[in-house]
Simulated assay, not measured.
Amino acid sequence: MGFHLPGIVNAKQILQRAHVGAESKNVPKGYFSVYVGEIQKKRFVVPISYLKNPAFQTLLSQAEEEFGFDHPMGGLTIPCTEEAFINLSCYLNSP
């Protein structure tokens, strides 16, 4: 008997669709790229371990609602300010 983790499965689906394009070649194994920002999008390369975090999964859900699965920049677009994303990244990287 197995169990289903909808947040992680959904995150994998988003990444599979977002990891298309030339930009994905510059991402080391175990990481993925995201674009963050309100007007000017900035690219961040983050570890896949972020996908386990509920706060990051919330951002992924918001990204899906706002942008769908079509990411023409070659990476996932996150609908938040750069400052908010950096704060979340610092939180996720702290022990």
Rank of each mutant, 00 (worst) to 15 (best):
S49I: 03
Y35Q: 07
S33P: 03
F67D: 03
G68C: 10
P47S: 10
S89Q: 14
L92H: 02
Y35A: 13
P72G: 05
P72Y: 11
Y35C: 04
H4K: 11
A55F: 02
F32R: 02
K25G: 00
Y50R: 02
E38M: 06
F85D: 05
L5C: 08
L15F: 09
E64P: 00
Y91N: 08
K25P: 00
H4C: 04
L59G: 02
S61Q: 15
D70N: 14
K25D: 11
P79N: 07
L76C: 15
L59P: 02
F69E: 10
I14C: 08
L51S: 04
N53I: 00
A18D: 05
G75R: 07
L51A: 05
V46G: 00
S33M: 07
Q16N: 14
C90A: 11
Y91K: 14
K12L: 14
E23A: 14
K12V: 10
S89D: 15
L92Y: 03
E38F: 02
G74D: 07
N10C: 07
M1T: 11
S24N: 12
V20P: 00
A11C: 09
Y35D: 05
Q40F: 09
P6G: 08
E64V: 12
V34D: 01
V45A: 01
Q13D: 12
M1I: 04
T58W: 04
K41H: 12
A22M: 06
F3L: 11
E38T: 13
K52A: 13
E82F: 00
I86E: 13
Q62N: 14
E65P: 00
G37V: 03
N53A: 11
A55M: 04
V34E: 01
